[in-house]
Design a protein around this nucleic acid. Sequence first.
DNA 1: TGCTTGTTCGGATTCAATTCGGAAAAATTA
DNA 2: TAATTTTTCCGAATTGAATCCGAACAAGCA
Lengths: 216, 216
Amino acid sequence: MARKPSQTRAKATVNAIVEAGFIAMAERGPAATTTRQIADIAGVGVGSLYEYFDNKDAIFSVMSERFVADTVALIRPLIPTLVRMPISDAVRELLERFREFLQEGDGRYLNCVQYAITLDFEMYLDPLQTALSELVTQYLMHHPETLQIRSIPTMSYIMIHGGIFAVVRHLTEPNPPISFDELVEGLARMVGHYIEQEIALAKATRSELNAQTRGD
Amino acid sequence: MARKPSQTRAKATVNAIVEAGFIAMAERGPAATTTRQIADIAGVGVGSLYEYFDNKDAIFSVMSERFVADTVALIRPLIPTLVRMPISDAVRELLERFREFLQEGDGRYLNCVQYAITLDFEMYLDPLQTALSELVTQYLMHHPETLQIRSIPTMSYIMIHGGIFAVVRHLTEPNPPISFDELVEGLARMVGHYIEQEIALAKATRSELNAQTRGD
DNA sequence: TGCTTGTTCGGATTCAATTCGGAAAAATTA
DNA sequence: TAATTTTTCCGAATTGAATCCGAACAAGCA
């Protein structure tokens, strides 16, 4: 961003530009939107775009940042509730809320997720990963029995990334072979089973060790 | 593609262009590569690009197609072997081969996967999904006990998409928090546990039903 | 009100993608 | 082999979108 807006009028302009960006992006996708279109929708001159944004991509970047920040703002407050639920219910709840979030405000975000992958969005994914990692960490702390499972970082990595992308991919596909509810249910079960199985395994290993100790 | 090359010379230029595309893409990413660069690397005039490709994106599309086709060509022959292995070993084997595939030829593909998501690559992902679906189907048929598990399409969807993207994401990240081997191991365990748990569940349900039947 | 600073604008500029018409090379024919 | 047709190649010219810039306009302040 080339310059910070100081007056309220200027802040309104910046906001109008970002809003226009969302509208244009939802209509045609990022590749097909021109600076002129954004400017027209925002009701400002083309030149104004460059007062506050270094270039066209900078507008998209701010949009991505805003989207990710809003998503994180959705997740963070849910953490205390989620950590007290059974794991599969927590997954279900989280994804259900996410779906609602995408659909609110006439589904603008929904139209953008579709193109989000196209952008340098990845750069701005970090806060989301951090928030989800925090959720996982807190969950583990609230359920001490889960702390026995092996390689928690790996498990967490797979669940977060596999989960994010399975969901994003599903939202992106024009004709997904399964419904969103089925996806959510499947993810909930997958996570649930993994945890159960690992706990059972840890228990078995422990009792085996005990047996050996007694045997010697 | 505007015109088909008929002479061998022309086929060579088409090939040179696509190769140049891979080189340029690996160096600077797709957004920063210009038609002139591609032409220079390929050793042809800019105009020649447009003899065989409608536009710049068409070059990237062909690259994506080629990459996906090669990946499918990697997977297909592995299917007969994979379906005879325990599920987690099959996952390990598949991913190990995929890693080798990406690294061969001085890692050109490896540099491209990074940008693959950026392109309309998704359009060309279908064959890969189909191949993996086939793998899953054949696997299920070779292991009749797995046919009891619930909502196979959902499970298959999650494993394929979550898996693809977790792997792609890992390859893309500059400093992944876990190693590729850990990722592979985690995915293998996750899939393995899910299957085991579902089979156990099905068995439990069945014997419960039997008990009820006997009880009445 | 006069002065300074912030804001807006749209024509001018720049740069990359794409087009086009003809030259060179290869294939075909006589 | 020479003439003719087809295919291929090219790079200067065109086009259109992104970006820059300096004049004109508004806000804050004395």
